[in-house]
Design a protein around this nucleic acid. Structure first.
Lengths: 127, 127
DNA sequence: GCGCTTTTGACAATCATTATCAATAACGCG
DNA sequence: CGCGTTATTGATAATGATTGTCAAAAGCGC
């Protein structure tokens, strides 16, 4: 069972105030700026734990870095991300979920997960 | 314009003989074993170039490592991968492609790409 | 307050991938 | 074939996000 620590609370609070996706490093820097002394390692661990628990939303950039955000929808969904400025739009399509599960089951696979990211250039950055 | 080099040919030949996905490091080791002296850097560059040209197929594991394979289908497709042994099944679903493009356009995004990976445990490993 | 256990965090380690840059090899041409 | 131009190569160093380490510092039940 997770304990209630000052650090965990700080990360939680921060996620409630910032909009959009941020990397662990960014969130760590923000915490530093607002005076909350939280170690980078702890930020990583906390975010990972929250992600595992489904409390927050993870996204992986092609560079391999992870970005986190508090879920606005509880349902599973995906992201349309601007390659240039990072702006994101949440999208969902139950048919895709259903399809992925069906295909996996068809081949006898179990414990199925999937990731889907759509990358493009947003209208603002296209100019 | 790419030039015809011994190294490029070696990578190409190797990809024609091995089945399944392999990491750049693995392919580099295989080349070493068969006596072809090719630098690791070159293997990376060659694979990346081939991937950009659509000649081979790339897949990204959650760990962040890239695996490559000669395409068996020319069409865009995705993969169902075993989390445990790495076995892969190629799957395709035009509806997903169409949906991704439609969603992106709907939001004004251009130059759209997408990635979709389905992870699970294959029947063999489930036992 | 007292232990027992979890959590923390500064720092080192990992590890695939990328950058560097001088040496080398392709290719077109006469 | 020899040559100059230009792309390619590759040993090595650098990068950079993430993870491991482990002693010190908190939770929490009593």
């Amino acid at each position: 069972m997770p304990r209630n620590t000052r650090q965990r609370a700080a990360v939680n609070a921060l996620l409630g105030e910032v909009a959009g996706f941020h990397s662990a490093q960014e969130l760590h820097a923000m915490l530093r700026d607002r005076g909350a002394r939280v170690g980078l390692t702890t930020v990583y661990r906390t975010l990972q734990g929250m992600a595992d628990a489904g409390e927050i939303d993870v996204m992986r950039l092609p560079s391999g870095e992870h970005r986190y955000r508090r879920c606005s929808k509880s349902q599973h969904h995906h992201h349309l991300v601007c390659r240039s400025c990072g702006a994101t739009v949440e999208v969902e399509e139950p048919a895709v979920e259903a399809w992925a599960d069906a295909v996996a089951r068809q081949h006898g696979y179990t414990d199925v997960h999937h990731t889907l990211e759509i990358l493009g250039v947003c209208p603002a950055c296209a100019a």
